[in-house]
Design a protein around this nucleic acid. Sequence first.
DNA 1: CCCAAAGTGTTATAATATAACGTAAACAGT
DNA 2: ACTGTTTACGTTATATTATAACACTTTGGG
Lengths: 131, 131
Amino acid sequence: MSKPLTKNQILVLDTLKAAPKPQTAYSLLEQLKEHGLKAPPQIYRALEKLLTLGLIHKLESINSFVACQHSDCAHQIAGFAICDGCDQVSEIIDDNLESQIRSVAKTAGLVPKKSTMEIHGLCRSCKGSEA
Amino acid sequence: MSKPLTKNQILVLDTLKAAPKPQTAYSLLEQLKEHGLKAPPQIYRALEKLLTLGLIHKLESINSFVACQHSDCAHQIAGFAICDGCDQVSEIIDDNLESQIRSVAKTAGLVPKKSTMEIHGLCRSCKGSEA
DNA sequence: CCCAAAGTGTTATAATATAACGTAAACAGT
DNA sequence: ACTGTTTACGTTATATTATAACACTTTGGG
Ligand SMILES: [Zn+2]
Ligand SMILES: [Zn+2]
Ligand SMILES: [Zn+2]
Ligand SMILES: [Zn+2]
């Protein structure tokens, strides 16, 4: 029996799901002020829970959060492709990625727990409209 | 002819080279106060320059900086293995990593510019001394 | 009912990073 | 040498991201 999400957790998750691009904690707070949320801890606490449930991901390189684009990849390892032109993000599950990570970890003699891979660049449409 | 580093840039780089673990901008500032540095921008500006020169790397997941462990990998793609027990970091250059990144980027239709890969876990010695 | 765990709302503060300003070297072209 | 341009400098102030701490409420099991 997995516990249902609380009101604040649902608010944050739904906002992330509806957003076209990654959101910072403070942009979420701004949007949720009309629903009664008032202070950063309310956002950060919901984010933390959603992270441990694997329902959202944090993009470390831009201090932002996105809803998981798969059903629930708590245990999986994902890579993120981030367009610096339009902020669009794709979450990529690649079978080789996990073995790649294990390989790098092994080289370093590290037992891996958690990893992030974030690739910045330009998507096709932004690449086309460059100066 | 590559321009020589400035005084502040050398101070920051040398401090990072001598450090046993990643340093935050503010820990660098703290250490460099005795050399006359007084304000964050002095540190951040040196860091930015050193980053573009490929002499240091930023670990996005811990908001910290490390000296490059290779001679100069401005163009290369590296992975970082970070021990959460002792903060030791290994910079791994793996031939497969670059192709892996290209693969993920291609899946997303992204022309890659810059990427980060950071693996957290426990090194052998910390793993051994677990509770 | 009672307890423990998890969540809530709130105020305050810590930690990370940049804007903006005026000045000073560094350097290439004339 | 004189210019203009670029880069770095030092400084003050502020923006952005994240957490500490406290008192209270809800939830669910024994
Ligand atoms: Zn996911
Ligand atoms: Zn784009
Ligand atoms: Zn390097
Ligand atoms: Zn360790």
